[in-house]
């Protein structure tokens, strides 16, 4: 069996097209949306991240049923968790960003929304020290037991190489 005996694919929707739909779906929540590089990027506070994810998944017009990727980012002044979402049934995509405070890195887990968030969250937890509240099994994944520190934080340096970008720029000319 191949896809040729299936109905034609739904047309890929542009970020501009889904922007009003997302705005409608997230009504009542505080957020900011702008398209960038062919993708709609929505920024929300950490407190409403799970609620937003749940709504985006269950919205009949959006149906973000597929979690492409979940990444942590150390922005210097704070952390950020980025959810790259995709809708298999509706064929559109977006990125959702939740800002996490560095001194109190806590964020509710989305394992209950997408099962596929499990290992991604465990990885982000050990690499950035983010506590994903409500994750059923938040223990080390890639690092060895007893590893000290969170390697992907910018304050963690490897082999004396400054991970501060300014310094590294000087070094590389």
């Amino acid at each position: 069996m191949t896809d040729s005996d299936r109905v034609l694919l739904p047309r890929m929707r542009t970020p501009e097209e889904i922007q009003p739909l997302v705005a409608g779906c997230l009504r009542g929540l505080e957020f900011e949306a702008k398209p960038a590089f062919g993708e709609l990027v929505v920024t929300i506070p950490a407190a409403s991240a799970v609620e937003a994810c749940r709504r985006l998944k269950s919205d009949p017009d959006l149906r973000f049923d597929y979690l492409r990727c979940l990444s942590g980012v150390d922005l210097g002044e704070g952390l950020e968790v980025v959810y790259h979402l995709f809708s298999v049934s509706k064929r559109h995509k977006m990125a959702l960003k939740a800002a996490v405070a560095k001194d109190d890195p806590r964020l509710a887990s989305v394992v209950g929304v997408w099962k596929g968030a499990d290992w991604h969250e465990r990885e982000a937890a050990e690499m950035f020290g983010i506590d994903f509240e409500g994750h059923p099994h938040l223990k080390t994944l890639l690092l060895i037991d007893g590893f000290e520190g969170h390697p992907l934080l910018k304050s963690f340096t490897i082999g004396g190489i400054p991970s501060d970008e300014e310094e590294a720029n000087v070094k590389n000319g």
Partner: peptide, 19 residues
């Protein structure tokens, strides 16, 4: 296979997440 690339304008990736 996904690559999430964050650049701050430097000669090295600021963050590169590999899916």
């Amino acid at each position: 296979f996904g690559v999430y690339l964050v650049s701050k304008g430097g000669p090295m990736p600021y963050r590169l997440k590999i899916r």
